[in-house]
Amino acid sequence: MLLDPSAALLTDRIAVVTGAARGIGAATAVALARFGADVAICDREPIGLQETAKAIEATGRRALAVELDVRDSDGVERFLGEAHSTFGGLDILVNNAGGGFWSPFMEVRPKGQTALVDENFTSVTHVIRHGVPLVRDGGSIVNVTSIEAFRAAPGFAVYAAMKAAVEQLTKSLALELSDRRIRVNCVAPDAIPTPGDAGLAETFETAEGAHDYAAKVPLGLGTPDDCAAPIVFLAGDLARFVTGTTLHVDGGTMAASGWVRRPDGTFAP
């Protein structure tokens, strides 16, 4: 196969994006549309969801927007069935919905733990279980995890454990679905401020004084579009031989591993 720019396009493919009312989900849904896909989106937040739908339609592509809590298995099944019947097929599933709260593990009550498990792991299994039978052979599943799947996360232990579980699920499904050439991958973002983590850029203290979070990130803070871009890549033919892997979309945070940029541009451990 000779590569040309058309391999980056998603013309007439059908994508599903969860948690698409804002942040990475909204940016991803619009980016997929700009590259040629029709997009079905869902979220619990109706106003932002409709704004995303309008942005998709402004690209000339079709949108289906359904208010939905992805923890509801029956609701997910209905949403995916509606997307399939509306557009005539499915090609791309993007599991972006998720969330968490800060709390030391010993203070997380069973109800709170169940909410974290359902929102960050079980919801992904709902979309995959109900979606894969509707996805055409050669499709793509992209799961949005987090840098917290790969490092300690004090105060977010259950959230991080569920993101790690999604990363492991991704590897297993990459093998189980390979006979249909359905590729399954992750992106693991960090340093991308969104409405869900508005405090990301707040300062933190080190032995050398106060720094903002961007000091821990070699490339500084990113934007939701910086995460949407690799999702578009994984969704399309440029990534047709990529499966079971994770792209770290973190501006170099994993590479830095605790190194902090000084004001003069050098780094301190």
Score class of each variant (00 low, 15 high):
Ala214Glu: 04
Pro263Arg: 10
Thr223Cys: 00
Arg180Lys: 14
Ser103Asn: 13
Gly220Ile: 09
Thr203Gln: 12
Asp190Trp: 12
Lys171Asp: 00
Glu77Ser: 14
Asn143Arg: 11
Ile41Gly: 06
Gly25Tyr: 11
Leu221His: 11
Val127Pro: 03
Ser103Cys: 14
Thr59Glu: 03
Ala27Gln: 07
Thr11Cys: 03
Leu49Gly: 08
Ala157Pro: 06
Trp259Ile: 01
Asp91Gln: 06
Thr145Ile: 15
Pro269Glu: 13
Pro263Thr: 07
Arg78Ala: 14
Pro46Asp: 00
Asn95Glu: 02
Phe241Asn: 11
Gly100Thr: 13
Asp4Ala: 15
Pro133Val: 07
Phe267Ser: 03
Gly155Leu: 03
Gly88Ile: 12
Ala207Phe: 00
Ala97Met: 04
Arg151Leu: 12
Pro154Leu: 08
Gly258Gln: 02
Asp264Val: 13
Ile192Arg: 07
Gly155Trp: 12
Pro5Met: 09
Arg262Ile: 07
Gly139Ala: 10
Val124Arg: 07
Ala8Trp: 15
Glu148Trp: 12
Gly98Asp: 04
Pro193Gly: 09
Phe156Trp: 09
Phe87Asp: 05
Ala40Val: 07
Gly75Thr: 09
Pro230Thr: 08
Val184Pro: 00
Ala33His: 08
Arg13Glu: 03
Ile56Phe: 07
Glu82Trp: 06
Leu247Lys: 00
Asp197Ile: 14
Thr243Asp: 01
Ser146Ala: 10
Phe267Asn: 05
Gly81Cys: 11
Val124Cys: 13
Glu77Pro: 02
Gly81Lys: 10
Pro104His: 00
Arg22Ser: 15
Leu49Thr: 06
Ser73Asp: 15
